[in-house]
Amino acid sequence: MNRTLVIGCALLAPIVALAAVSLAWTPYGPADTTGGRLTPPGAAHLLGTDRLGRDLLTLVMIGARTALTTGVLAVAISALIGVAGGLAAGFAGRLADDVLAAALDILIAFPALILALLVVAAVRPSLFATVLAIGLAMSAVLARLTRALVKGVLAQDYITASRASGTSWPRIVTGHVLPNIWPALSVNLALQLGLAVLAEASLAYLGLGAPQPDISWGRLLREAQATVFTSPISLIAPGLLLAMLVAGANLAAQGLRLAADPALRVTR
């Protein structure tokens, strides 16, 4: 473990803890409005209540769960499609590769958020639609990265040397290609986790995220706009957690890269 990875994980840990605890317990129910509107922070409501009278800590905890679920699932979709597509393109013959590369460039030219908007508009808004949209939008970037990385590794002499000693293609892929693209890939996956959470929050903020019963930091931020001067905490709490998650994911990404490369690894 290097320092960057430790700091990244330290930023992510409280959010993971909030999300985990929310599965079993929250101070109040998410629909409980008995606290009264815009109650300031106090013993009964640690972070106070929002303008509908819901306990803000409860909302923020459930929001953490939504954020992490969205992030992890979207990255999983992106990784599955992107890495498989990128590997295929990297190994493909010249023509198939050119076609794929052109298609990816066009996809990437669309801002991911617009692409996600289109998907959400095409199907009924739900958390799943949001996750799918973000995952698909991000997979194009990952596919292009994977393709470039695979091409780079395949051009290396150690691939030729290993093949000269009789290593088969599947073993070249699992033994040399995947491990050698993993450092750069893992950094990108971690970065994408942060981006996915931001994208989900943005969609929710625009009112295009999952509908009512689902709670997300993005919608909390949207709702807090109206009361930003009377109750800044309802804006600060979800905003700060969002920033922590994105920064944590970025730092963890950087740390992972350092940890994965033996030549960069600091001597213990």
Partner: peptide
């Protein structure tokens, strides 16, 4: 070809650093 490589014929190349997987 793969059955031949390693047993019938194999090779050692010029640059020793490039010919070995840096992560293995």
């Amino acid at each position: 070809l793969n059955r031949l490589r390693g047993r019938a014929v194999t090779a050692v190349f010029q640059e020793s650093l490039a010919a070995l997987d840096p992560l293995m």
